[in-house]
């Protein structure tokens, strides 16, 4: 286990380093932040001052080394736009995005697993066929369209839910959370559901495929022949075995949701990290873009590690050994 973790950490460090270079070059290639940020009325003198103030007068390689040096000391730079540390800006926005991602993932599991299980156990019932047909919609409808439709129906027409924004928050551990207030939950429902739609469909399909495959296995036949109750066969013998692909996909999807819920966050004016990154890209706020992408790299590395460890807990045959 220790050797496995150590090797993973070294790999992670290498990936982070390579990514930092790629991200830096990519962000550099997009465009010139001064042209975007500076007031059009600024004269040449003022432009030169701003270029110097933001450190953009240095050649690229020196800008990268400065960034790397600061990053090693835990400083990912200051936002050009907000004049605040990029990392703090991102962390400020994190609770909002986490709420959304956790809400969507929980909804996906609560709704997706039972439906998928049912569709797998009774593949020929009309209800199963209905579930599978509907799940196609969940895959294929674009998020921004579904989001706008949700707003039109539930906020504009019916007036049940607030249209956009984040509700009232309470402060816990220095972070603002909205899922603990009534108003906060009301604001959370639509964006979380919008994000969950794709995931629900995914979980339904994975679960159904897993159940259908597992039901034909010898050990299931044996369990039934032994006279175990259908409930025990389903929930102990089948369910546990189909969870491995579901955990993998949901884990990676969770990371994707945190990192790239941009569309949902902008449609619902949800002040999360996705909104921050898209606003930052629009004004070429390089420090925030770089810090954000670096964080996402770390996030995915962590999630993969957690997924690997979860495997070993779910399936005793998987061993986290140092030897390959």
């Amino acid at each position: 286990m220790t050797a496995f973790l150590l090797r993973r950490l070294i790999q992670a460090a290498a990936v982070v380093l390579v990514m930092s270079l790629l991200v830096f070059l990519g962000v550099f290639a997009v465009g010139d932040p001064i042209e975007i940020l500076i007031s059009p009325e600024a004269d040449q003198f003022e432009r030169e001052r701003a270029i110097k103030a933001l450190g953009l007068d240095l050649p690229l390689w020196r800008q990268y080394l400065v960034f790397l040096g600061n990053a090693l000391r835990g400083d990912l730079g200051r936002s050009f736009v907000f004049n605040e540390p990029a990392l703090r800006l991102i962390l400020d926005r994190m609770p909002a995005t986490l709420e959304l991602a956790v809400g969507a993932t929980v909804a996906a599991l609560i709704i997706g697993l039972p439906l998928g299980l049912y569709a797998g156990l009774k593949p020929n019932s009309p209800l199963s066929k209905g579930i599978m047909a509907t799940s196609i919609l969940g895959f294929s409808l674009p998020t921004f369209w579904v989001g706008l439709m949700l707003i039109m129906v539930f906020a504009v027409q019916l007036g049940w839910l607030p249209s956009t924004g984040r509700g009232e928050t309470v402060t816990i551990l220095g972070m603002r959370w909205s899922f603990l207030t009534r108003d906060g939950i009301a604001h959370l429902i639509m964006p979380a559901l919008n994000l969950a739609l794709f995931k629900i469909s995914l979980v339904i399909r994975l679960t159904r495929a897993g159940v259908r495959e597992t039901m034909l296995m010898d050990y299931v036949k044996f369990a039934r022949a032994k006279g175990l109750s259908p409930a025990r066969v389903t929930f102990v013998h089948v369910f546990k075995n189909i969870l491995i692909p579901v955990v993998t996909v949901v884990g990676l999807e969770f990371g994707g949701t945190i990192a790239f819920s941009v569309v949902t966050e902008s449609v619902f004016a949800w002040p999360g990290m996705g909104k921050l990154i898209i606003d930052s890209i629009n004004v070429l706020d390089r420090p925030v873009m770089v810090a954000y992408l670096m964080m996402i790299v770390l996030l995915f590395i962590t999630i993969n590690l957690v997924v690997d460890i979860t495997y070993s807990l779910l399936d005793p045959r998987v061993r986290l050994e140092g030897k390959s």
Partner: peptide, 10 residues
């Protein structure tokens, strides 16, 4: 004002 990306100094 430090780090101003677009100053009012004009």
């Amino acid at each position: 004002v430090p780090n101003s990306p677009s100053s009012y100094a004009i």
